[in-house]
Design a protein around this nucleic acid. Sequence first.
DNA 1: AGTTTCTTCGAGAACGTTTTCGCTTTTTTT
DNA 2: AAAAAAAGCGAAAACGTTCTCGAAGAAACT
Lengths: 337, 337
Amino acid sequence: MKRFITIKDIAKELNISVSTVSRALRDTYDVNKETRDKVLEIASRLNYKPNFNATGLAKRSSHNIAVILPFITNYYFSTVITGIQEVAYEKGYNIVLYVTNDSPERELNIINNLPITSLDGLLVSIASNSDSYEHFEEIIANETPIVFFDRVTNHLETSRVIQDDYNGAFEAVEHLIENGYTKIAHIAGPASLTFTQNRLKGYLAALEKHHLEVREEWIIHSGFSQKDGVEDASFLFTGENRPDAIFAVNDRKAIGAMTYLKSNGIKIGQEVGIVGFTNDPSSEIISPSLTTIAEPAFEIGRKSCELLLRHIEKKYFQPQEIVFPGKLIVRESSVKV
Amino acid sequence: MKRFITIKDIAKELNISVSTVSRALRDTYDVNKETRDKVLEIASRLNYKPNFNATGLAKRSSHNIAVILPFITNYYFSTVITGIQEVAYEKGYNIVLYVTNDSPERELNIINNLPITSLDGLLVSIASNSDSYEHFEEIIANETPIVFFDRVTNHLETSRVIQDDYNGAFEAVEHLIENGYTKIAHIAGPASLTFTQNRLKGYLAALEKHHLEVREEWIIHSGFSQKDGVEDASFLFTGENRPDAIFAVNDRKAIGAMTYLKSNGIKIGQEVGIVGFTNDPSSEIISPSLTTIAEPAFEIGRKSCELLLRHIEKKYFQPQEIVFPGKLIVRESSVKV
DNA sequence: AGTTTCTTCGAGAACGTTTTCGCTTTTTTT
DNA sequence: AAAAAAAGCGAAAACGTTCTCGAAGAAACT
């Protein structure tokens, strides 16, 4: 059976009480410097490790935060986690990771089975087709703070951090227009997600500003995968009225569309312009290279975590919305020469 | 202050003792079916959530496992985590994530500050230049099981799961030879890592089998990034005695090398053959597409976690080494036509 | 010298469970 | 019908901390 050195062992060793040891290990006041030094010395000699279950019980707070998101196997999310992890590490928090596989059922199941009593807060990016938010409300009611990032919801009064989807999309589409494309399609994400709605709005606004017509059949909602991109492009380029440009909701779909076009002999850039969203490293590797809107994924992770920690540490802290601007990165896929 | 429903609330409600409630919530024996049903009903009505700090304290086991690895922002590691997470989810374990940024100091710091008393086990892939294993030994001495994956060490008597680096490399290089390349360079990873050693051995064995000369200057050890690949290639192709093929320790370096060759007008495949390792999705996106050895990353994650859980649950379980075979995937970068 | 204030510490309860032991009551065996 | 075994439950200790209270002594005032 495992057996670790406890505060009691230290107390016995020095013939003092556990309360004193406890104080010595944390505070500096209310304990004599000498005894404190002795405690610290013994503690490190015996290689004492605090029992987090016990401290968690006694203080009603562990130093754990849950991160719940759809996937981790893509550039965006893995980079966000890296950012989160960076500030968690600095501040001595542990990250408990849950991945929903973008399934609402699994998300629900995870939330319901969360070790909520040993979690100080939650960082979440919701699944595509979540339609109910009760499970989150319940957690909020229990005074466990939540910060949403990227995939947020307006149904809940919490802090959130996102990129500027509307303006990013607007800029992307305007860039296509300025480069002489006029028949611009949008291959979008699942309609339920706030950020696909915002990117769609940005797309529409840019068309409107430049007096270009909006065609229903040029707006396709589907999933986020490369395969979805292939299918959407195949749909767009088999009928009549083919577009001459595509704005994709993310780089993976853009890349899917590119592979479709390439294998059908359509010249990217020259004949059909393409712009993605994210700045996935693949967008630089593919040829022609992909124009895209870069998202500050790492910073979004950092900021989300900082915000959550503020909520955890200060008691009443007004929910905030933080919006990061995107940045247009022009490459080969959106220019005609 | 947060306040959750406890076992005591249920006991009070039903006028029975907490011990009975505790039993009812877990076992089926030693408690009448009727009272058990009543307890379960009240528990779900009050929305009772067990306090994991308390159970952890009382049972000396949380249901947490730590995952410690260098990065998560690449295909291989993020897929491994997804596999780990899959079985952890099935079995009701939580994953506590730590990323070392491939820094030995940070790794050490993380290990030393681990909430070890509330961790049932560890899954780790070590940092590149870790030279000391004492911190791991200490954990093992405390009877907390560790399973290493991918980046393992021979200094410790623990279970480990890896891919067959030797044979994968052998196959990759033999494939190049069979396709008519004779001057094959190897851009390798940091020399300290077991798996780069094994891939190097596989490379050497293939050369030897086919009586090709080994040239020291064609073997370069550096980091794992795309940038390292660029630099290694630039080194290989600026001097005299240029190779006509490259076997890269991973796909990112292979891709780096490809970008260098492409921008220098060297025809990949025709003039210089390239094979990578991993089967990163980028290897299919880049053109020409990259021949590679596919690693079963997801399965490695699953298996590592299963093994760890076995160690946690059975007491004395002989350390095992599990080796997954790789699979050669032939694409355009390694054929001369 | 007497009073007040600080400083340092210990006793013991509390956090929410599990677990051991033993006591009733019921059921089974003879 | 008596004896033995089993079933169901409660009291209380334990897990390793933190925290509140108060006591003892030292230091600082009058």
